[in-house]
Write a protein that binds this DNA or RNA. Structure first.
Lengths: 238, 238
DNA sequence: GCCTCCATGTGTACAACGTATTAAGCGATG
DNA sequence: CATCGCTTAATACGTTGTACACATGGAGGC
């Protein structure tokens, strides 16, 4: 196959650009698509809409991107650039800041936590780089390869699960033209009230009345993250 | 509004069925939709396809379900029925079995871990029941409401994150007509090889060569779950 | 027993989606 | 200056969610 035509997206992108004359480029496409998704959500990212945003015919982007799946991968890689770790931290602070920066990334791009299966698994260079950094942070502590990867994947799973929820909340808020979490609560109140009136969820009802940090997503994230890190330290004897 | 028309989906469903003559019912709709999603994935669940499966006109289900969002909620509630906890376990075994049964549920219905935002947040009766059970398991240990909910949400986030990944793998396998994880690895090998050949990910490469449990999803899930539970125990002084 | 009404299912229709296909434009090469 | 090949444009098809108007047939009042 040599440098053939069946190369992966990333392989193709790294080859020198065949000509600097083009108006369209993967970079421009990614930037535009990300802008749409950030402003109006993933479902607003349409091949036609994207083309319109780039002032170009609907089919034009297909020269650079083989389809919508490719586009999503490009978007993911695009926003993951710049997710790096500071030097000189121990493994725990490394995983911790990685998790927190991932959260910030996903708060800025809530569609990141709502990707379809193929994009969730996409092996983009920047995502590989993140995994590499995490593994490096866990290297040299006497752990075997499986333990290192498991620790990383545990943190990653927690962050994804948390942010999937958080981003769903945020999506719902903007989709229903609400201003904040309080208004969302008001919107959901009737259903919730009805559930409570069935009397089937007494403990939950007590929670609703006595809890004080129901809306503090940051606090909940930090709490869970500390739990995960504590557990990893215990399990791996760190 | 009395027993008015603006009632929520669940409120409407709990009112006595107005007539036993109908061919269509929320139950039948949910069962059919779940069957389609289980067999061919969420994207195969189409209002038209659903109607065809029920031998009914395309618009018929809309009498019982206000749209696709409602349909998804119905599906979620349908598969969550029967997710209950055994009696007489301590908090840790309770959360543990809850997590493991949720995993089994999501392995049987992989679309559950790929729901769009609205469905992810849907307050269905069965999901409320699960939350109620989890909170009950944490009740009476001297924890305040926020701590109880945080513990539950931490486990829930981990399970969702993990299963989101696992279900994406499984979806990819069936979508590409592969037989198992090994074939998926073969399919992904070229891209992975290319990434490795860039030499940018030395630690990751070492992992690829020395790890022995790369494909043992069950082991990875259990490991992470134990970490989470350990951490919760430590943090909450249990 | 008959008529009426309303919940239920049918049929048709539309805008928007992803993308296959085919034609047109333009830069660099000979 | 003619030609070739990569890039963009135009058109078109099948599928999606769902709005809307209509048909129908069993339950309740007379």
């Amino acid at each position: 196959m040599a440098t053939g035509e069946n190369a992966s997206l990333w392989e193709r992108l790294e080859r020198p650009a065949p000509a600097p004359r083009q108006a369209l480029s993967p970079q421009r496409i990614a930037t535009a698509a990300v802008a749409i998704a950030d402003a109006e959500g993933l479902e607003a990212v349409t091949m036609r809409r994207l083309a319109a945003e780039l002032s170009v015919a609907p089919m034009a982007p297909y020269r650079h991107v083989s389809g919508k799946d490719d586009l999503l991968e490009l978007m993911v890689d695009h926003v993951y650039t710049g997710l790096t770790l500071p030097e000189g931290l121990d493994w725990r602070d490394n995983l911790r800041t990685l998790a927190m920066r991932t959260r910030e990334l996903m708060l800025g791009h809530r569609w990141l936590a709502q990707l379809p299966p193929q994009a969730r698994l996409s092996l983009t260079p920047q995502r590989m780089a993140v995994a590499e950094q995490a593994l490096t942070a866990l290297d040299g502590l006497g752990l075997d390869a499986d333990a290192m990867m498991s620790a990383f994947r545990t943190v990653d799973a927690y962050v994804h699960g948390c942010m999937n929820y958080e981003s769903a909340v945020s999506t719902l808020i903007t989709e229903q033209n609400l201003s904040d979490g309080d208004e969302l609560r008001d919107t959901l109140a009737p259903v919730m009230m009805w559930h409570m009136r069935t009397g089937r969820y007494p403990t939950f009802q007590r929670y609703l009345h006595t809890a004080t940090r129901k809306d503090d997503a940051q606090w909940q994230f930090d709490f869970g993250l500390d739990c995960v890190l504590d557990g990893i330290a215990t399990r791996l004897g760190l």
